[in-house]
Amino acid sequence: MKLSQIGNKIDPINEILENFLDDAGVTCAILCDMGGEILTTKGDITTLDFTNIAAMAAGSYATTKGIANLLGQSEFSLLFHQGTKNNILISSVENFAIFIILFDANTILGVVKQKSQEMKETLKIIFEEIVKGKGIVIKKAKVFEERDLDKVKPSKKKPKPAKKDEAEKEEAEEKDGSSKKFDFDSLMIDDLDDIF
């Protein structure tokens, strides 16, 4: 969801984030749209390049979504990264927004997880109200060019070599196992013309 769509509902959203910071004892929280554009931030972010953090977190989140699709599960609901001092947790509120939580080693992960789950539920209600009130349709970003993932099969097909003599040469090479050397000189540039 875009900031322009949220309008004055940003106030209750900010309040929810503030409460979350207090309850969970985390350093800061960033809320951004699915593309990584900042919606709001709370907590101590003065030293952080939060624009880039949000953009990268969105990339990270989107790729895990792609992985989830590939593995046939709905999503990875929670991305957790542990560092030596700082930890980061990324999760989403449905397809409305992504939140990024930074916390240090003194904060208990279990608490952050639980409180963020609660925050997610409250944020979801607000986002749904906005959508309902303004008649906004939230589109899901698609990951694969071909939607039907059931059809995704490993490419086992073996395209036929363009020329017959090549096929024979290839077979001969395979038999004597001598193709350790790749012949770049008679390179496949001519063969490219056949393909294009």
Partner: peptide, 30 residues
């Protein structure tokens, strides 16, 4: 010659991270 194309894009179809298209030209010179 082609595999599945991936587009990591926003809901407005702007590229968010990358697009990926694997091409496989088959065996050429072994």
């Amino acid at each position: 010659y082609k595999g599945k194309m991936i587009a990591i894009a926003t809901e407005t179809e702007r590229t968010l991270f990358f697009d990926f298209l694997p091409l496989d030209f088959g065996k050429i010179k072994g």
